[in-house]
Write a protein that binds this DNA or RNA. Sequence first.
DNA 1: CTGAAAGCGCTTACAG
DNA 2: CTGAAAGCGCTTACAG
Lengths: 344, 344
Amino acid sequence: MKRTNGTAERKNRTTILDIARRAEVAPSTVSNALSGRRYVDPQIAERIRKVAAEEGYVPNSIARGLRSGKANAIGLLSSMPFGVAGGSSRLGFMMELAAAAAAYALQRGLALLLVPPMEAGRPPLQNFMLDGALVVEPFAGDPFIQQLVDYALPVVTIGKQPGGDDIPFIDLRSRETAELVFYHLIESGAQRIALMIGKSRRTSYIETQVIYIERMKQLGALPAIVEIAEEGGEQAGYEATRELLAKEKNIDAIFSFVDAFATGTCRAIRDAGLGVPEDIRVATRYDGPRARDNDPPITAVDLGLSDVAESAVKLLIDSIDGRQPGKKSLLAPPPRLVVRGSSS
Amino acid sequence: MKRTNGTAERKNRTTILDIARRAEVAPSTVSNALSGRRYVDPQIAERIRKVAAEEGYVPNSIARGLRSGKANAIGLLSSMPFGVAGGSSRLGFMMELAAAAAAYALQRGLALLLVPPMEAGRPPLQNFMLDGALVVEPFAGDPFIQQLVDYALPVVTIGKQPGGDDIPFIDLRSRETAELVFYHLIESGAQRIALMIGKSRRTSYIETQVIYIERMKQLGALPAIVEIAEEGGEQAGYEATRELLAKEKNIDAIFSFVDAFATGTCRAIRDAGLGVPEDIRVATRYDGPRARDNDPPITAVDLGLSDVAESAVKLLIDSIDGRQPGKKSLLAPPPRLVVRGSSS
DNA sequence: CTGAAAGCGCTTACAG
DNA sequence: CTGAAAGCGCTTACAG
């Protein structure tokens, strides 16, 4: 009896050697016959296939991977903290990307490995077999990116990493997104718009702030920017909004960028005895379940995440295959405003 | 110069042999020093760690996996067709399970591999490195399960596979779920309830039908069961409902089991000139975005999927580790009815 | 306590 | 056209 290979259930699996012995050929011939990579005498090939079928032979993908240097898998990572990326229903930005990325990756023969943010510490990437990774909205100096670069793994980021000039990315068009939102809020009558945004240095935050400040200057209005630690999630959005309303009396619109903040913002406005949208209009970026399910539903932006995910996987596959893509970045589809009760 | 190993980006990575040479010890000593698996003279261990750090050594997880027989990854598979599992926003049952399973698996040092249903053909499971898999609501004779069993991979199903008596599973308590829904519909005044359900032989469908028939008998009402091919998604739900309403005139409630069907059901009722819930009450099983975002929002059941996912991963890890768990199945949390506008 | 060897199961050059 | 050998990069017994 052969030794087991550690996993009780998988002991004694038929190997290519077993097939070779029974079919009386060399192991390499079995390999070639089964993979079709090289010509093998049709009669012999047929015999090999028959034996393999009889023995229930299944190739060991890890052994194959060691030789070929491919894991046939890519990771999807996010350093966005749990209060935001996850939350009670956990059906947000990252999972929408995950679903689309997984579907497309599978079409290309790759599995998608889901690496959610960890509550504490870094995920044990060491242990995972990956050919590359997608990173969702990394911030400047994101340790995730650093770790992947250390592992010499190809990376594509969804949303450029600030300063990550050598890393291929999908341009989420955050400037345009911000333009859309501010234009809408102003057009619907807002005079004094506040911006509530995450603290970390992610490109979407940075670009939104730039546009916000420009607009406020044009409008001759004083900017009111509140930066929130993302870990706080909805509760932090709530508290920040209460404070803001206590200090600034003439706010009549809030772009509460992160959807988790935005639901907190709505709650805070109501608790302050004010109405959404009558007294204060609210908008958020990601048009996910959180925005849609809120009462009232929150105006948001359709970012075309299915297309984003697909482009990202494409770029990553190019990078894994060592193809130097003409462009190191791809554009997301144009953002589309979805107006809802929170602002009209 | 060393040969590359196939992936352009990962050529010439430092190996344990490089470290061994530079630190003037045996490769096995490097392995032991770095893993801490065996005692190594502290001075030597320190030297090894220093060299490894300098060289930027990262262990090759595939090589490690070949030797140890572990991929440190589990799969999440669903044979539910795309119209149902996916759909435009793709944020459904499977993704909610995925998010929770991934988070818990990561805590246990495992990655979660997302294997969505393929449009055509079977996914290339051969190529994926897995220690086991979770299968979502398999039907009788599900080829996914067959494939996994052929690969001798441990499997846990979320929802028992009909006839799958040897496969550990999470009991989704579909009988109780059905009881809750029918009790609610009857209590809210329904006299003639129709059941609209998928065609394949999944446990949740089977159990729901059993309860439905019992209830109708008690009520002295004629059962009206419509079985729909799942691939049809919302459109099939729409068409089936139109046909049903054309044939049966006194239907005043529909349990449209699959959420994709249920939104079609609501649309069909309206197109027939009737109102939800005034003329016909509607309920569905999975309390996801689809049910919540519908107009009117659809009464549904909270199945506690986070707990379900966690239990499933636990059971799977037991099975992978060869531990014979006391129980081969675990119970989902009690289903909880979420009453919404579609039925009240 | 540590080293040298064998081996995980394939695939890839190298011979013939 | 096919076989025998080497090798992917680790870890696991086996020696000492």
